[in-house]
């Protein structure tokens, strides 16, 4: 773990403006922000550790627990909402047995909502590992997660 983190840090000058790009790269590497990594980032950039945590918790992108192998993001954009996104989310929660923001115990699935993925003409939609599933219905959700989502 340390080597990857060091490699990321070495690419950035020790400046406050680098904090968010560093956090983004660390999350891309580990799928979340491990506590030790945030402490190391604080040391590296020379800012109080609470500041790193304050910034990380402000932005919706950052998470503090590992992501599941299959990461579902249900869009809660306006177009999706008027086309029934809320019920789509409920059905995904029902199928996976977890709530928004959670990861299954076996780390297979994690679920989040996203403000808008910009595929508004294909509403309601969701994304599984960056692949957009368009024009969702409750039955399509059941189909997607049938057999544990394989």
């Amino acid at each position: 773990m340390e080597q990857q983190l060091e490699a990321i840090l070495a690419d950035h000058p020790r400046k406050r403006e680098e904090l968010i790009p560093i956090l983004q790269e660390v999350q891309a590497e580990y799928s979340y922000l491990p506590t030790e990594a945030m402490l190391e980032i604080a040391r590296y950039t020379g800012m109080p550790e609470s500041r790193v945590y304050g910034v990380a918790t402000f932005y919706a992108q950052f998470r503090f627990t590992p992501m599941g192998k299959k990461h579902t993001m249900v869009c809660r954009g306006t177009a999706c909402h008027v086309n029934g996104a809320e019920r789509i989310l409920e059905e995904v929660e029902e199928q996976l047995g977890i709530k928004e923001g959670e990861t299954t115990e076996d780390l297979e699935h994690s679920l989040e909502t996203v403000a808008c993925i910009g595929a508004c003409s294909l509403a309601p939609c969701l994304m599984i590992n960056n692949k957009v599933e368009a024009k969702m219905t409750i039955n399509k959700v059941r189909e997607l997660y049938k057999n544990g989502g394989e």
Binding site: K15, E17, E18, I20, Q24, V55, A60, Q61
Partner: peptide
Amino acid sequence: AGAFVCGEETALIASIEGKR
């Protein structure tokens, strides 16, 4: 990094500076 409020000019600037 995912914050609607960063459409606000001063918030966007804070974000570029690495702040909340």
